[in-house]
Design a protein around this nucleic acid. Structure first.
Length: 586
RNA sequence: GCGCCCGUAGCUCAAUUGGAUAGAGCAUCGGCCUUCUAAGCCGACGGUUGCAGGUUCGAGUCCUGCCGGGCGCGCCA
């Protein structure tokens, strides 16, 4: 309908231009927006106001002229000029009920574009270092990225969801070494654990598994490991230097094959756990992309070579630098260290280049807001490589601050308080967890109150929406109990009986869903879906309280049931985008 | 110091991306269950959108400068 109104206005415009009422060269976008207020009809057009200057004429006069030139249309009942020069469109009753017919006909596809023919987009999210279980801090990125992916899919994009696995860095060596040290302790070796080692229970569990699988094959006397070590941080030394020395010695003592054995087991175990955790949270990536594979397949050298060929690299202080300042970055960045190793940034250049080489039309990186410093240099590298940096979007997700009632939770690993995503899921459930994480726009800090998320009360917006869905299901159960049946076709034939204000408000809300999906997808803002659903649920509850659906009059009853079933379908579709279930009973 | 993000009702946040009288929830107060689930509904109270300028038919939204808060500024990942 929106498009049809647009077409009508365009026709009126060209008529006025032909008559010379407005300049022929005036280029004005015709924006059809949904009226906020029922008083202003269904749709509003602001074209007259935009034309005022170039036409040197009062907006209201242009609006009057436009209305006069407007072709008639069966879907439009009435057109008014209002306010400073808005043109308000009132839909005919028949056109106004179209959303009900659409929602019932399309079912799970209502509001969702045709799948599989849009641009290909890569959404990268979570990408947490596989050095331990997911933290509640990762939960928001997971919920956001997943909802965004669903939203883009619904809007017609072909979405590929990816997790970038940082399996190549020093942190991974610290993990592997931590596991081995715990393994040695399990075998009865006496040694002190490094300050910088990973101390979580999961490290001991991996160590125990290593012992079960490999017995004492990897056992080395602790004496060999501990001989002539520098002082650790708590001993007055440098903890970074200490752990690096322990890592180096572990590699020497174990040899390449055995060290890799420990490394792989640690990585695989942690990654399996992360995957399982995400699945439990309704989050599914299509692929896990290994940073190490970039190295192994020469992708990093490939990227650096391209930069070199373009003259974007130079040598200084023994290292190789990328002249990112030439592309707007604050300072140049090292890509190859003095010791010959490439940096994490070099991997990132190669990874992003790889994304585009795989043929995606667009890429979106969802990451924590603390990584925003990375945007400039990654964009710079893409530009240097001859790619269009505007095809890569960054969505920064701010931290979530957890509360238990009014008490703010400290989320340090050390405190042993509520820290993992799994614990959060266990406590509040996937539905509430996912909903609360995406309730706020991503760049806004999020206060996540566990008590509220758990509460089965009116305060809890998740239940409010789910309850609206369950109530409609309950009505249908009541219908069956009364040995009545719903004749859908009869209902659709009598939609005109739905004349109550609450009914029109509900139809209106249902009709907004398709454009909401489009808008929210374009803005990459899943929170719009959450807010929309709250409004839709409110329209359902209000209607429910004001009117009986199961009335004697079969025509009216069938029509009302068509309306609430359309609402139920819309709630279901919207909740699915957020990864939240739509229970039939509560 | 430089860069990015954020300042909206007592609290937590929206605002169709520049539109009409800035809206919800919570909290407070007052109503509604003999009727399809009260996890619901209706009403009241609550605002100089951090401050000061600017841009235009129109600014919470855009530009400038302040004030306040968060994050970032490694040959770490």
């Amino acid at each position: 309908m929106r498009e049809e109104i647009r077409a009508l206005v365009l026709q009126a415009l060209s008529r006025l231009q032909a008559e010379g009422r407005i300049p022929a060269d005036a280029e004005v976008p015709v924006q059809v927006e949904r009226a906020r207020d029922r008083q202003h009809g269904d749709f509003a057009v602001n074209t007259a106001m935009l034309l005022a200057r170039s036409a040197r004429c009062k907006p209201r006069e242009i609006a009057e002229a436009l209305v006069a030139a407007l072709p008639s249309h069966h879907g439009v009942a009435r057109v008014e000029v209002a306010g400073p020069g808005f043109i308000n469109f009132f839909l005919s009753a028949d056109a106004a009920f179209q959303p009900v017919r659409d929602a019932l006909a399309a079912g799970g596809a209502y509001g969702h574009g045709v799948a599989g023919d849009g641009p290909r987009v890569l959404v990268e999210y979570v990408s947490a270092n596989p050095t331990g279980p997911l933290h509640v801090g990762h939960g928001r990125g997971a919920a956001f990225g997943s909802a965004l992916s669903n939203l883009l899919t619904a809007a017609g994009y072909r979405v590929h969801q990816e997790y970038y696995v940082n399996d190549a860095g020093r942190q991974m060596d610290i993990l592997a070494t931590s596991v081995w040290l715990r393994y040695l302790q399990l075998q009865g070796e006496q040694l002190r654990f490094p300050d910088n080692g990973y101390r979580g229970d999961y490290v001991r569990e991996i160590a125990a598994r290593l012992r079960d699988l490999d017995g004492d094959r990897l056992l080395h006397p602790a004496g060999n490991l501990l001989a002539e070590l520098p002082l650790d941080g708590s001993e007055g030394g440098d903890k970074e230097n200490y752990i690096d020395t322990v890592i180096a010695r572990s590699k020497t003592l174990l040899g390449d094959d055995d060290y890799q054995r420990v490394f792989r087991l640690a990585l695989d175990t942690v990654l399996d756990d992360i995957r399982d955790d995400l699945h439990g949270f309704g989050v599914r990536h299509d692929s896990y992309f290994s940073e190490r594979s970039l190295e192994e397949e020469g992708a990093i050298e490939h990227a650096l070579e391209l930069l070199e060929r373009g003259g974007h690299l130079y040598q200084a202080d023994g290292a190789t630098w990328f002249r990112s300042t030439a592309f707007g970055d604050e300072k140049d960045r090292v890509v190859r260290r003095e010791n010959g190793a490439t940096t994490y940034f070099a991997s990132d250049i190669a990874y992003h280049l790889n994304k585009f080489e795989r043929g995606f039309d667009r890429c979106i990186d969802v990451m924590g807001a603390d990584h925003h410093g990375y945007i400039g240099r990654v964009r710079a590298s893409l530009t240097a490589l001859g790619r269009d940096p505007d095809l890569l979007d960054f969505r920064l997700v701010q931290f979530a601050i957890l509360y238990r009632g009014t008490q703010r939770l400290q989320m340090s690993t050390r405190s042993g308080q509520f820290v993992t995503l799994r614990e959060l899921r266990d406590e509040v459930g996937t539905d509430a967890g996912r909903f609360f994480y995406v309730l706020r726009k991503p760049e806004q800090h999020l206060d996540f109150d566990l008590e509220l998320a758990k509460s089965e009360s009116a305060d809890n917006p998740v239940y409010y929406i789910q309850y609206a869905h369950a109530r409609i299901c309950s009505v249908m159960r009541q219908l069956a109990e009364r040995s009545l049946e719903h004749d859908r076709d009869n209902g659709l034939d009598h939609l005109a009986r739905l004349t109550e204000e609450h009914e029109q408000a509900l139809v209106n809300a249902i009709g907004q869903y398709p454009e909401l999906v489009t808008t929210a997808a374009a803005a990459a803002e899943p929170h719009q879906v959450a807010h929309y659903l709250r409004d839709l649920a409110n329209a359902v509850h209000t209607y429910y309280n004001a009117h009986q659906f199961l009335v004697e009059d079969a025509d009216l009853r069938d029509a009302r049931l068509c309306l609430v079933l359309a609402a139920r379908q819309t709630i279901r579709n919207g909740l699915a985008l957020l990864g939240v279930s739509a229970p039939e009973a509560m």
